[in-house]
Write a protein that binds this DNA or RNA. Structure first.
Length: 695
RNA sequence: GCGAAAGUGGCGGAAUUGGCAGACGCGCCAGACUUAGGAUCUGGUACCGAAAGGUGUGGGGGUUCGAGUCCCCCCUUUCGCACCA
C-alpha cells in the first residue's frame, strides 16, 4: 500500500513502503517520494513529541502542553473496508479498534476522493453531491465565527462496505463532521462508544450496538450475548467512551480494551487489511510568501532542466532594491526583469528565478545561530562558533509564540542537526514566556495588548524621555511577575523614579566617607551598624537566589527594603565610626551592583561616583552573602494559644526547645489566656513558633 | 462542550512551600517644609470596634495543635482546544 500520495497531499498510513499506486487517485508514487515525505513529516513530528523530555524541565508546562496538542500525536490503527460490488476500499483511522464490532456505518468526509466513484452508478448521485457542495460552501463562510458546534448533517450514499472483522455489511454515509485533513478522511461509526457517532446515529436513527462493557469492581461484568445487528438505541442514553471489556465481539469477546487494541491491530496487519499506525495533527509548513522582502527562495526554473537549485557558490541570492506591487496577489518581484531573468546554473540557457520569498518564520527559526557569527560571508554560520554559544541557555519571548515560532525553531534545529550544522536536538534549554504589557483601550474599560490598530500603544521613546530608560525598565520588571500580564500605569513609573532618586541621594550623601577600598572589618559594630550589615547580607542572599528563579519583581522589592534599611540607619556621615562607614559601604555597594541589571545606566554612574574606575560591568564583582552575617542575633517567636496569635517572645536563635517552651508559657499575656484552663499540649517549632493547646 | 490555570486590601502583588496573612510599590489620608505644590520629607492605611478584642485569603465542608497553602463539592474569571475518530 502507498502511504503518501503527492497528489492527494494526504497521509494514508505511517508505515514506510516501497511505492506503488495510490489507491485513492491512481497516481504512481515512487519509493523515493515516499521516503522524502516520511523524512519531512513523520520523522520530525515524532521527534517534536519525543524530544520534549529534553526540555520540559526548563519550559513552562503551558507551552509544552500546547505544543503537544499542536503536533497532535495519536496512536491507533488503519482499517480497510472493502466496498461491496466494487474493487474500492475505504480506509479509516481509529484509536478504538476494539469497538469495531459496534460499527454500524462508514462515514466519509465530503471532500473524500472516493465519493464520486461510489456515486457513479447511484441514483442518489445528484442529491449527495449537492449535499457535499453545500457543506463545503458553508465551511468557507464560517471561518471566523467559531463559538457553537455545528449541527451534524449527513446523507446515505446507498453503497455498502464489509466490516473485515465479521463480514457485516455497513452503509456508507457522507457527513460534515468527518474531516478530510485528519486521519484517513473517513471513520467507522460506532455510536455506542463515541459521542459524535452517538449523536449522529440518534439523529439519523442508525442502530446503536454496545460492544464494550464497563468493568465493575475490577471484575468484568457478565458479557451479554447479542446477535450482530441488534439495536440498543432505546436502552443507551449516552455513548460509553471508556475502556472496558469486549462483548458481542465474536472470538474477541471477554478481552480487555487495552489488550484488544493491540491484538486486533496485529490481526489486521496479518490479514493485510490495516494495522497499527500513528497519526499527527500537525500539517506541512508552506513557506512561500508573495512579498518583495524576505529571504529569496534560491531556485531557478529552466525550460530544459526544470527546477534547479542555485549553487552554493552563487548564494546568497540578492533582492532588488525596488519592486512594484502587482495588484494580482503575485510577488512584486515578478515586476523586476533584472531579478527574474537569469541563466540556468546547469545548462547556461536563459531561465527565470523563483519570485516568492520565504515566510519570516523561516528567519526567526534560526536567527540566534546567525547572531553568533553575523559577519560570516561564506555560510549561514560557522558550526564551531555556534557550538560555543548554543544551545540557548535562556530564551525569553511572549507566549503568543508558544506554538508557531517555538515549534518551527525546534523543527528547524532538527533539520540543521541532520545537515551536520549543529550537534544537538533542541535549540533552547530554558524558556521564559513573559506577559504582555497591556493598556486601556480608549473609550472602554478593557485592557488589551498594545497595538497600532487599537491605538493604545505607548511610545517607549516618550517614556524614556519623560522618566528615563532606567526607571521605565525598573518599573516594568517590578510591577508584576514577568510571566504575568502588566497593566501600564504612569504613576507606577513615578514610584520607580522616586526610588532611583533616593538611591542616588543616599550614594551622594555618603560618598565623601567612602573612598578607596573597604579594608578589614572593624572589631566593634554598633547594634545599628550590625543590623544594617545583617540586612545587606540577607538581601544579597535573597537577590542572588531570586535571580536564578527569575523572580525579578521580588528582587526589586528586596533592593527597596535595603534602601529603606539604609534610610533607617540614623547616623550622620560626619559622625560615623569606622564600623558605621564599613557597614554603609557594604550596603551601598551591594545595592548599586545588584541594581545594575535593572537600571544599568544610573548604576554605572553611581559606581563611578563611589570612586571606582573601569566601569561597573567590568570591575565590579557580584556581592557574596555571608550566612553568618545574615543570621539574626535574636528571634521574635510568635506564641499562639489554640492556634491564635496571642503574644511574642524575644529569644536567642540557639535557645533550646525546653527553654523556649518555658519562656512562652511564662509570658504574662499567655498566662491570662491559659488561666484556669488545662494545658493539653505545647507544640514547639524551633526558630518558628510556639502553640499552646488548652481545654 | 472539553482541558488547564487562577481567585489574597482601593490597585499591582508578597508569603522561606503546612507555622506571625498583606512584604515592596501604587493610590489614599494626615502632618512638615514652602509664595506655591502635580516637588520633597515624616507618619498612617485589610475590615468591624472607643478599647479589650473579634473577623478576614471566592463560597461550603474536611484533615491538622495549626490551612492562603493539603483533600472533597460548588461558584467565578482567564487562557487553550474546538467535531482530531
Amino acid at each position: 500500500a502507498v502511504n503518501w500520495c503527492p497528489k492527494e497531499e494526504t497521509v494514508l498510513s505511517n508505515e514506510q513502503s516501497s511505492g506503488g499506486i495510490c489507491w485513492r487517485c491512481g497516481t504512481q508514487v515512487t519509493k523515493k517520494e515516499i521516503e522524502q515525505w516520511y523524512l519531512r513529516t513523520t520523522k520530525y513530528a515524532e521527534q517534536l513529541v519525543a524530544d520534549i523530555e529534553e526540555i520540559e524541565k526548563g519550559w513552562p508546562e503551558k507551552v509544552i502542553k500546547r505544543q503537544r496538542d499542536w503536533v497532535g500525536r495519536s496512536e491507533g490503527a488503519y482499517i480497510d473496508f472493502k466496498v461491496k460490488d466494487s474493487d474500492e476500499k475505504i480506509r479509516v483511522f481509529t484509536t478504538r479498534i476494539d469497538t469495531i464490532y459496534g460499527a454500524t456505518a462508514i462515514v466519509v468526509a465530503v471532500e473524500h476522493p472516493i465519493l464520486p466513484k461510489l456515486l457513479e452508478a447511484s441514483a442518489l448521485k445528484d442529491q449527495v453531491m449537492t449535499f457535499a457542495e453545500q457543506v463545503k460552501a458553508s465551511r468557507a463562510i464560517k471561518t471566523e465565527d467559531q463559538s457553537e458546534e455545528e449541527e451534524k448533517l449527513g446523507m446515505n450514499t446507498g453503497r455498502l462496505a464489509f466490516n473485515p472483522f465479521n463480514g457485516e455489511l455497513l452503509p456508507i454515509w457522507v457527513a460534515n463532521y468527518v474531516l478530510m485533513d485528519y486521519g484517513a478522511g473517513a471513520v467507522m461509526s460506532v455510536p455506542a462508544h463515541d459521542e459524535r457517532d452517538f449523536e449522529f446515529a440518534q439523529k439519523y436513527t442508525l442502530p446503536i450496538r454496545q460492544v464494550i462493557a464497563p468493568i465493575v469492581h475490577g471484575q468484568q461484568s457478565e458479557p451479554v450475548d447479542q446477535a450482530p445487528g441488534g439495536d440498543q438505541s432505546m436502552e443507551m442514553k449516552n455513548a460509553f467512551t471508556e475502556y472496558g471489556v469486549l462483548v458481542n465481539s465474536g472470538e474477541w469477546s471477554g478481552k480487555l480494551s487495552q489488550d484488544a487494541i493491540r491484538e486486533m491491530a496485529d490481526y489486521a496487519a496479518e490479514k493485510d487489511f490495516g494495522g497499527g499506525a500513528v497519526t499527527y495533527r500537525i500539517r506541512d509548513w508552506g513557506i512561500s510568501r508573495q512579498r518583495f522582502w524576505g529571504a529569496p527562495i534560491p531556485v531557478v526554473y529552466c525550460p530544459k532542466c526544470g527546477m534547479v537549485p542555485v549553487p552554493e557558490k552563487d548564494l546568497p541570492v540578492m533582492l532588488p532594491e525596488k519592486a512594484e506591487f502587482t495588484g494580482t496577489g503575485e510577488s512584486p518581484l515578478k515586476t523586476v526583469p533584472e531579478f527574474v531573468n537569469t541563466t540556468c546554473p546547469t545548462c547556461g540557457e536563459a531561465a527565470t528565478r523563483e519570485t516568492d520569498t520565504m515566510d519570516t518564520f523561516v528567519d526567526s527559526s534560526w536567527y540566534f545561530f546567525r547572531y553568533c557569527d553575523p559577519r560570516n560571508e561564506t555560510s549561514p554560520f560557522d558550526p564551531g562558533i555556534a557550538a560555543y554559544w548554543t544551545p540557548v541557555d535562556q530564551y525569553i519571548g511572549g507566549d503568543s509564540h508558544a506554538v508557531m515560532h517555538l515549534i518551527y525553531t525546534r523543527f528547524w534545529t532538527k533539520v540543521m542537526r541532520d545537515l551536520g550544522l549543529v550537534k544537538f536536538n533542541e535549540p533552547v534549554k530554558r524558556l521564559l514566556t513573559q506577559g504582555m504589557v497591556t493598556n486601556k483601550v480608549e473609550g472602554t474599560n478593557e485592557y488589551k495588548a498594545m497595538s497600532k490598530s487599537l491605538g493604545n500603544g505607548v511610545d517607549p521613546d516618550e517614556m524614556i524621555e519623560a522618566f528615563g530608560a532606567d526607571a521605565t525598565r525598573l518599573f516594568v520588571l517590578f510591577a508584576a511577575p514577568v510571566e504575568n500580564e502588566l497593566r501600564w500605569s504612569e504613576t507606577g513609573i513615578e514610584g520607580a523614579v522616586r526610588f532611583l532618586r533616593r538611591v542616588w541621594t543616599m550614594v551622594y550623601r555618603w560618598r565623601e566617607r567612602l573612598p578607596g577600598s573597604a579594608g578589614i572589618p572593624p572589631a566593634e559594630f554598633s547594634d545599628a551598624a550590625r543590623a544594617l550589615q545583617r540586612k545587606t547580607h540577607q538581601t544579597i542572599a535573597r537577590v542572588t537566589d531570586d535571580f536564578d528563579k527569575l523572580d525579578l519583581n521580588t528582587n526589586v522589592a528586596a533592593l527597596m527594603e535595603l534602601l529603606n534599611a539604609l534610610g533607617e540607619f540614623n547616623v550622620e556621615p560626619g559622625n560615623a565610626s569606622d564600623a558605621d562607614v564599613f557597614a554603609v559601604r557594604e550596603a551601598i555597594e551591594a545595592l548599586v551592583i545588584m541594581l545594575a541589571p535593572f537600571s544599568p545606566h544610573i548604576a554605572e554612574e553611581m559606581w563611578e561616583g563611589l570612586g571606582h574606575s573601569g566601569g561597573l560591568l567590568k570591575s565590579a564583582q557580584w556581592p557574596v552573602a555571608n550566612p553568618e552575617l545574615a543570621m539574626k542575633d535574636e528571634l521574635e517567636i510568635p506564641v499562639q494559644v489554640n492556634g491564635k496569635l496571642r503574644s511574642r517572645v524575644i529569644v536567642s536563635p540557639d535557645i533550646s526547645e525546653a527553654d523556649l517552651r518555658e519562656l512562652a508559657l511564662a509570658d504574662a499575656k499567655i498566662q491570662t489566656f491559659i488561666d484556669g484552663q488545662k494545658v493539653v499540649k505545647v507544640i514547639v517549632v524551633p526558630q518558628r513558633l510556639v502553640n499552646v493547646v488548652v481545654k
